[in-house]
Amino acid sequence: MKQHIFPALRLTVVCILLFMGIYPLLVWSIAKAAPASGEGETITLNGRVVGYKLEGQRFTADRYFTGRPSATGYNASLSGGSNKGPSDSAYLTEVRARIDSFLGHNPDIRKENIPSDLVTASGSGLDPDISLQAALVQAARISAVRAIPERSVINLIKEQTDKSINGIQKINVLRINIALDQLK
């Protein structure tokens, strides 16, 4: 073992220089050419930053589309999920409460039309998206609160839908809410 101590120490120092120094600095300097210089892309509205492009934020008001439940209350500096198992009784009570609350706010919707992503917490607590179904079941409420025709809310939803390679049609909640505020 003795003959290995000095090579081990010296090699460790070289690795520190290489993988804690050169490698991250290289990535960091490439980041200067990336969107927002690698500092996280923000969304600006009237000269004010209103959010990060990739991260979801909390919407509770009836006049906005609500995003997915978050175990951390959309805390962007402490991410995480609920870590509740599928059969846990406290968890199922919580989901039931979310369903009831949703039905209370959206009296025209029938329970079997609520998609599960609206009543289950996301993995990160910062999921920026909801499914197309989750947006459509909120259309009636939003049109009533904002006194705009339901047709135009649905059109907005269609406009804001993107479909990724896996075929899931999803809507970015922050983006659609900004567009909603600008809707005449």
């Binding site: 999920g81 609520i114 998609p115 599960s116 289950t120 899931i168």
Partner: peptide, 24 residues
């Protein structure tokens, strides 16, 4: 999740607790 099935909601994207929409 069969327990959510019993609550009577739709699960068009499968079991979504702890998952992100963009991955499915």
């Amino acid at each position: 999740n069969p327990a959510l099935q019993q609550l009577g909601i739709a699960q068009p994207h499968g079991s979504m607790e702890g998952k992100e929409i963009r991955f499915g």
